[in-house]
Design a binder for these strands. Structure first.
Lengths: 342, 342
DNA sequence: TGATGCAATGTTAACGTTAACATTGATTTC
DNA sequence: GAAATCAATGTTAACGTTAACATTGCATCA
């Protein structure tokens, strides 16, 4: 390994002069500077980052904590990581993915995801004890943390309103059988759209949703395929709102298999916008969670905090955007709100 | 930050005794050891990895070089990264993803992918000049590198043979319009299956493939959907071999839309096995590239080399495995090899 | 009883870099 | 012409850890 010491000896100067040529060249006589630069180049000197880190107490590494229960090989993780990677590499930072906190690792800051608010406290204390800033995908009531989260309720509400505005009144939601916040929130958003349009059955209290059908299946297109076949054997809604695009793929297939068309016979709406919505024909109109952008924003927020450029802490709740596909059409059959027709 | 120096002062011992308690506790008198351990715990001492790295010249970090032209948000990259991550985290190693080599970064070794053999030489020299081992996804004729690659020819050949053994003689391949090695290799494998079964049209030289139809489309399910519709409007082969599972998804949709069934009317075979084959109904029988496992094996090979446990260098060409779906059935129509029927 | 061995602990130096302070010699200032 | 200034460079110490060698004091042995 070529060190500053070796360069200094070759050039007949002291180590610190070499260091100055590298860091503050203006403070070195041009003659000396040119000599040292020539030797640096000749011996292909590269600084030892480790030694620099020891002095500066900076590593140029961000630790990204993704708990082990989140598979790295799903679109969520990959978009998140891609966003972080792009934000950091432009600033000459790199990152390490941590799957647990068993191990010491020196870094300049943490990006954290996949935690419920109560799980977050120990991680927060961990970062605080190391005096490192932290940015969180999620929202939490702890001070000194940059937070960004997605509003699943609004996303589900808006795309459901979209279906309602296209004239659909008999909309079935295919939701996931998982006890996660996002599952609950998307169903709430679905209901809220009916409430906003005052389409909850007359004479029923706001909040009485027994007249709106929600079918459950697991989050796979195969499960959605069978659930949809069963549904279509029973009756034919004018639209299906799918809690995820993975589900929507199975729904579209089941509609085809039934000899029906999308969107002519049944409209389909999805949620996630992480690539699966592009796989069907027609492409699915969906709600996009900007995971890539969130990863990028979190990384940028963290870098701003590290550099001291930013004073106030972010606390953002993003409104997800509707991505236009071709899977939503005008309602061509049906009898209005199913509850009203009963 | 709590350092060994602070612990030493509190315990009334020298720094090196603290270091010994941490590294070689047997060499410390039990009495002293217990005292120091108590204070270490009380002040929540954690070692400074940077300082350790400076002394040991080891970082416990592997640099994973994925050139910028490979999007991190595709299944290939994500499975690759997941495999590496799992192999490394069990050994208390972490990794950094490098998107270019503009920047110095201290690491214990390199994992490299996505390079053609000529692009690989400078990267190889880069690693060699830093005296760090390297493991490559690909194959190359350079010494001192662990290599693992997938045999696309054999994979395509075997799944095509599978179709031939099911009685199919009129098989169309839907290939990608990209000038990449894998595209060429999969088409070669497709042809080879016919040659192996001596099904290249009678009276034609081995290698004359004008009687086997290959349709091209871009690597998206929408493009495959339209290409397949056009194909089915012309004629109905008994099976379609798709160069990628993304294409296979569009093919299945087009078959449905035509009012036909998979595999009753048309069998479908795919390639990749990175998740998309699970999205259709029926699930696609495909050839799986074990990307996750390759990432894992490369990481393990690198760790073995770093630890000096391994002498000889790996040079593996993996045979991809067929993943059973339900998309291949017996041939129920058709007239044998299309060329013969002409 | 003095030499030998050994367990326990300490001192010094090293890893490669940079910050803070020190020195040198030439130039400017009053 | 002595004092002050300044550019150029050097010396020392520091970051936190560990390796190599040194010391101490006690027990063992001939």
């Amino acid at each position: 390994m070529v060190t500053q010491k070796m360069i200094a000896e070759k050039a007949g100067v002291s180590i610190i002069t070499v260091s100055r040529v590298l860091n503050t060249p203006d403070k070195v006589k041009p003659e000396t500077r040119i000599l040292v630069e020539r030797i640096l180049k000749e011996y292909q000197y590269t600084p030892n980052q480790i030694a620099q880190s020891l002095v500066s107490n900076k590593t140029s590494i961000i630790d990204v904590y993704i708990p082990e229960y989140i598979a790295l090989d799903n679109p969520f993780a990959m978009y998140f990581i891609a966003g972080i990677s792009d934000a950091l590499s432009s600033q000459l930072y790199s990152f390490s993915i941590l799957r647990n906190l068993n191990r010491e690792h020196n870094c300049d800051g943490y990006i954290v995801t996949g935690l419920l608010s109560n799980e977050f406290v120990p991680v927060w204390e961990y970062a605080k004890s190391r005096n490192r800033p932290m940015a969180l995908f999620g929202h939490v009531a702890l001070p000194g943390v940059d937070c960004i989260d997605v509003d699943n309720v609004i996303g589900a509400c808006e795309i459901t309103e979209r279906l309602l505005e296209a004239g659909h009144r008999d909309i079935v939601m295919l939701n996931v059988t998982e006890e996660k916040d996002y599952v609950h929130d998307r169903q709430m958003g679905f209901y809220r759209a009916f409430e906003n349009k005052s389409l909850i059955g007359e004479g029923k209290a706001i909040g009485d949703r027994s007249d709106i059908e929600v079918v459950q299946c697991s989050n796979s297109s195969g499960s959605a395929f069978y659930a949809t076949k069963e549904l279509l054997n029973r009756r034919q809604p004018t639209a299906i709102f799918c809690a995820t695009d993975t589900i929507a793929i199975g729904v579209v297939q089941a509609i085809y298999e039934k000899g029906l068309s999308v969107p002519e016979d049944v409209s389909v709406a999805g949620f996630d916008g992480l690539g699966h919505h592009l796989l069907t024909q027609p492409q699915i109109t969906t709600v996009r969670q900007p995971i890539y952008e969130i990863g990028k924003m979190l990384a940028e927020a963290l870098l701003a905090r590290i550099s001291g450029k930013e004073e106030s802490f972010k606390n953002v709740l993003l409104k997800p955007q509707i991505i236009e596909g071709k899977s939503i059409g005008a309602a061509t059959h049906g009898t209005g709100v199913k509850g009203n027709a009963d």
